[in-house]
Simulated scan of single mutants.
Amino acid sequence: MIVRIMGEGQVKLSDDRFAELNKLDDELLEEMENGDGPGFRRTLDQLLDAVRRLGEPLPDDALEPSELILPAPDATLEEVRAMLSDDGLIPG
């Protein structure tokens, strides 16, 4: 699966890595619902770091369709809230 981190680029990520990412996504959703700004920032950083660590960056000139788009590292709670679906940022 191709994941885009807004403002950074794309990463190719194996489907078997999504269990770890879904756990962080669930935490992020809960923190957002509770208005926990510091928790939101910490978990968003952890989620983006996990994508970078577990995935393989695509070259900057690659234009693959992204199956998942994650917010930029400096995104606000309100900006991320606007991106959410019922499942959070990561479906499933």
Rank of each mutant, 00 (worst) to 15 (best):
D87I: 00
D86E: 15
I5R: 03
K23W: 03
G88F: 00
S85C: 07
M32F: 08
M32A: 10
V51T: 05
I69D: 09
L77S: 12
L84E: 08
E78Q: 14
P59W: 06
I2M: 09
M1K: 04
I2L: 14
A50S: 15
Q46N: 07
Q10S: 14
P65S: 13
D61E: 15
M6H: 09
D36Q: 12
K23M: 07
D16W: 11
P38S: 09
G7S: 10
P65F: 09
G88T: 02
S66T: 09
D86M: 10
A72P: 06
E33Q: 15
R17F: 01
G9N: 09
K23G: 05
D26S: 12
I90Q: 00
A82L: 13
G92V: 00
V51L: 10
L21P: 01
D15H: 06
E78I: 10
E27Q: 13
D45V: 02
G39S: 12
F40G: 02
G37K: 15
M83W: 07
I5W: 01
L70G: 00
D36G: 05
E33D: 13
L63M: 08
L48H: 02
D36E: 13
E67C: 01
S66A: 15
D45L: 09
A62Y: 04
N34M: 14
G92M: 02
A82P: 04
